[in-house]
């Protein structure tokens, strides 16, 4: 069969099978919906759950109101952790140390051993709550506040600063270890 130009008519019957190119709109739409839910959920979670770290001096000032409420405390260790200081409390390993912020000291009993980067003068974020009372058996804070309160921490995070200069450690020592 030919057309008026003498060339054969085209077979314009739609093709079927694997050669047909089809793009489903449902997969990207489902992905879009999932992403929208995730984004809204993340922002909502951030707004409602994100807690500002309480600096040690503020935390001390507010500790009566805080009670045994869980929060994140920011301070700098006044000395490196000594592995020999680890004590067993209720069968679990704990490490005592003291942190400071603006010259205010907080005594801490932390579950487990501190992370590798735990060091004098490097700020840490401690998750836990206040405890009022005598230190647990075997716990001592030689350079601590020893004021009848301690912070019971079950998580230690390190807040590394932006200084990568070689001299920063010497400078930090010169400033005095209570500065943060």
């Amino acid at each position: 069969m030919t057309n008026t130009a003498g060339s054969p008519d085209l077979d314009l019957t739609p093709r079927t099978g694997s050669t047909a190119r089809s793009r489903s709109k449902w997969v990207p739409l489902a992905l879009l919906a999932a992403i929208a839910v995730a984004v809204v959920g993340l922002i909502w979670f951030l707004i409602t759950n994100s807690q500002a770290f309480l600096e040690a001096d503020v935390a001390v000032a507010e500790r009566v109101e805080q009670g045994d409420k869980r929060f994140q405390l920011l301070g700098s260790p006044v000395s490196d952790a000594d592995p020999d200081d680890t004590v067993l409390i209720d069968g679990a390993e704990h490490t005592p140390f003291t942190v400071a912020f603006d010259d205010v000291l907080v005594d801490v009993v932390s579950q487990g051993t501190p992370p590798d980067l735990f060091a004098e003068g490097v700020p840490v974020v401690l998750e836990g709550h206040w405890v009022q009372g005598p230190a647990p058996a075997g716990v001592e804070w030689p350079e601590g506040a020893n004021d009848g309160w301690y912070f019971d921490a079950d998580r230690v995070l390190v807040k590394h600063d932006e200084d990568y200069r070689n001299e920063r450690i010497e400078e930090a020592e010169d400033r005095g270890r209570l500065d943060t």
């Binding site: 759950n49 994100s50 807690q51 980067l117 230690v156």
Partner: peptide, 14 residues
């Protein structure tokens, strides 16, 4: 560095 892979309450990360 921080002793955690991820923090859901961390503003920069989230």
């Amino acid at each position: 560095t921080w002793n955690t892979w991820w923090e859901w309450g961390d503003v920069r990360l989230v």
